[in-house]
Amino acid sequence: MHGDLHRENMIALPAGGVGLIDFDDCGTGHYLLDIATVLSSVHRIADTEPGGYVAFARAYLDGYTQVRPLPADWTRLLEPYLLLRDAFILNFVTQAAPVNADVASWAPRRIADIVANMQAYLEGHPYPGNLGY
């Protein structure tokens, strides 16, 4: 798996299509983490347009399943992988912010948003990015 498959690590290729960069987090793991990472990354920008995120997610998953099937229980597993992705982000920003001014500029807000999402999830609300199938 790529391990950090968010929108900033995808580039448009001159001949069309999408290329991937930043392979320093590649390793073995469940591919649903990469799917959750893509969906989480897009959710933060597409959710501002009504229906935008769900439309993207369905198109992305339709395309993905043309190459590789999803596990039968993927709808149950997606939400925990969305939480796991945010836990990775918390780990990254708490380590990087003290030594990286760019990360330090957005880290406090991102941390607050993730903690609020996790708290809401513990109170019974769906986690952001969950498609509610």
Rank of each mutant, 00 (worst) to 15 (best):
G132A: 08
S105N: 13
T94C: 12
D34Y: 04
L39G: 01
P98A: 14
R76P: 01
A57F: 02
Y127C: 07
F88S: 06
A72K: 05
A112M: 09
L83W: 00
T75V: 06
A104Q: 09
Y53Q: 08
F92L: 13
A87L: 13
Y64I: 09
D47P: 00
H125I: 01
L5T: 05
R68D: 07
A59H: 13
M1I: 07
P128C: 04
M118F: 12
W106I: 12
H30A: 06
F56V: 04
L13T: 04
A72R: 12
G16C: 09
Y121F: 13
L122S: 02
A112P: 01
N117W: 09
E8R: 15
I111N: 04
E49V: 14
L33A: 02
H6P: 01
M118W: 07
I89M: 13
A104S: 14
P80R: 08
Y127V: 01
W74H: 12
A12Y: 10
Y31T: 00
L122C: 05
Y64M: 05
L77E: 15
R44F: 15
A55E: 14
W74L: 03
F23S: 06
E79Q: 09
G3M: 06
E79L: 03
H6A: 06
W74M: 07
V115Q: 11
G27F: 12
N91A: 10
Q119E: 06
Y53C: 01
G19T: 11
